[in-house]
């Protein structure tokens, strides 16, 4: 399954809920969710652990808009909106963790 998270992990529990409940698949970070993909933060270990179960992607236009495209941790795949579409198409279901 494709799991979409659009909230900052520092403000909201969406990412935590997703990582606690989802069995695996692909995790796509969009909108304010992209902050979780940054290297050199205390939250990095959490996402690093998640990589054992998930392929982790982040929406590049959202990273660029927020001035953090150069800080993405290793192992996170960057996609544009076309890549977002491909991810939805290639997974039988998707869930937005609103």
């Amino acid at each position: 399954m494709l799991h979409i998270v659009n909230k900052s992990h520092l403000e909201r529990s969406a990412l935590d809920a997703c990582l606690r409940i989802a069995t695996g698949g692909t995790l796509l970070l969009i909108e304010d969710g992209v902050y979780a993909a940054l290297a050199g933060t205390p939250g990095e270990a959490k996402l690093r652990d998640a990589m054992a179960r998930f392929k982790v992607c982040a929406l590049a236009p959202d990273l660029e808009a927020r001035g953090v495209a150069d800080r993405v941790m290793e192992g996170v795949a960057l996609v544009d909106y076309g890549g977002f579409v491909d991810l939805v198409a290639s997974h039988p279901t998707c869930q937005s963790w609103l």
């Binding site: 236009p61 544009d80 909106y81 076309g82 977002f84 579409v85 491909d86 198409a89």
Partner: peptide
């Protein structure tokens, strides 16, 4: 933006 990209890909 998702819709636009999907349409561009022929979906």
């Amino acid at each position: 933006l998702f819709c636009k990209a999907a349409l561009a890909k022929g979906h």
